[in-house]
């Protein structure tokens, strides 16, 4: 099993899928000759040529729409948007067309469209480069939304997304492209639905996704060694559709739930998970579930303010300790 970086997992998935199927093609800003802002498409332009690895103009809504159109008649586009903040410009094509066409046509037209996009806060990038948009995409019926937290899933989710006949949005993270992790040498597919238990535990379920999975894992280690609390860390991973049964199974076991998100709380992933817990296992709870989340503000440039706005492992530990009174 090789150790790969997150970007290398994405690159390998592109390469395998493009080699297998000549109708798989990639498009986005600076993905070809320059190899992509995070190198995730490096070398593909030389290998597959400009018909299949396309440097687009700065025209997000329309090249997304071109991807959607191509998908509707049988091609398999992988559209990269350079940053999730720019995906707002592509929302019309994504939400009005990609997400709805299969249903609206009574199942007669499929849209095997893939959008890959990094989101999240990095280091002082300012309010217009720090959006976390998981909650926006997961609110759209007809889309599948997944968030790889490891190189393994960065590879496996893109593989599955390309093979899926549904439109899939993959939300990567600005700060994770150089993250290292083991990726099996043989081909494999990460399912587009279902949670993954990253660390089994019996005392409290910590639900996380994308970069917050790492905060949760760090917190769980410390909770075990310093406070004797055995936390189960669940990577939600597939945000749309969400795995209700997977969420409920963990909460029924631990009777305690914490949700950790890099985003603001209102109308968010945490709200949705809480609603599911409420609906599925209210009577199994020993304490009210708690959300750990960002402040509800545009992200400031100043490094101290930025840090104050975004949660971290310490906040997760504090929330669990408070829940257990330790």
């Amino acid at each position: 099993m090789a150790e790969l970086m997150y970007w290398q997992g994405i690159l390998r998935a592109h390469d395998e899928e493009m080699a297998r199927d000549p109708l798989v093609f990639a498009m986005g800003e600076d993905i070809g000759v320059a190899g992509g802002t995070y190198k995730a498409t490096s070398g593909l332009f030389a290998k597959y040529g400009e018909q299949r690895v396309i440097d687009t103009p700065i025209s997000e809504n329309s090249y997304t729409g071109i991807g959607v159109g191509a998908a509707m008649v049988g091609a398999r586009p992988i559209v990269e948007i350079m940053s999730v903040n720019f995906a707002w410009l592509a929302m019309d094509q994504l939400m009005n067309n990609a997400a709805k066409i299969h249903y609206m046509s009574g199942g007669r037209i499929r849209c095997p469209f893939v959008m890959r996009v990094p989101g999240g806060t990095a280091h002082q990038l300012g309010a217009q480069h720090s959006a976390r948009m998981e909650k926006v995409f997961m609110g759209i019926s007809g889309l599948r939304v997944v968030t790889p937290a490891t190189p393994r899933d960065a590879y496996g989710l893109l593989k599955s997304a390309v093979r899926s006949d549904d439109p899939v949005v993959i939300i990567e993270h600005e700060s994770m492209y150089n993250l290292k992790g083991e990726v099996p040498d043989e081909e494999f597919f990460t399912p587009l639905e279902g949670v993954e238990i990253m660390r089994p535990g019996k005392d409290v379920s910590i639900f996380a996704y994308n970069i917050s999975v790492h905060w949760a894992l760090d917190a769980a280690k410390k909770l075990a060694s310093e406070y004797g609390i055995d936390a189960e860390v669940i990577d939600l991973r597939a945000l749309k559709p969400l795995d209700r049964a997977g969420i409920a199974a963990s909460v029924c076991k631990t009777h305690h739930a914490i949700i950790v998100e890099e985003d603001e709380a209102p109308v968010g992933v945490g709200s949705e998970v809480m609603a599911i817990i409420n609906e599925e296992c209210f009577f199994d709870l020993d304490a009210a579930p708690v959300r750990v989340h960002a402040l509800d503000i545009p992200i400031p440039y100043n490094h101290r303010l930025e840090k104050a706005a975004i949660p971290n492992a310490g906040d997760v530990i504090a929330a669990v300790r408070k829940m257990f009174g330790r």
Binding site: N85, F86, G126, Q128, H129, Y301, N302
Partner: peptide, 22 residues
């Protein structure tokens, strides 16, 4: 200190800003 390099503003001199989205 909230804006940074890409988001300079000075409405007093009618400089209405720098913006990140092309």
């Amino acid at each position: 200190g909230r804006g940074g390099s890409m988001h300079l503003f000075d409405p007093d001199v009618h400089f209405m800003g720098g913006y990140a989205l092309v």
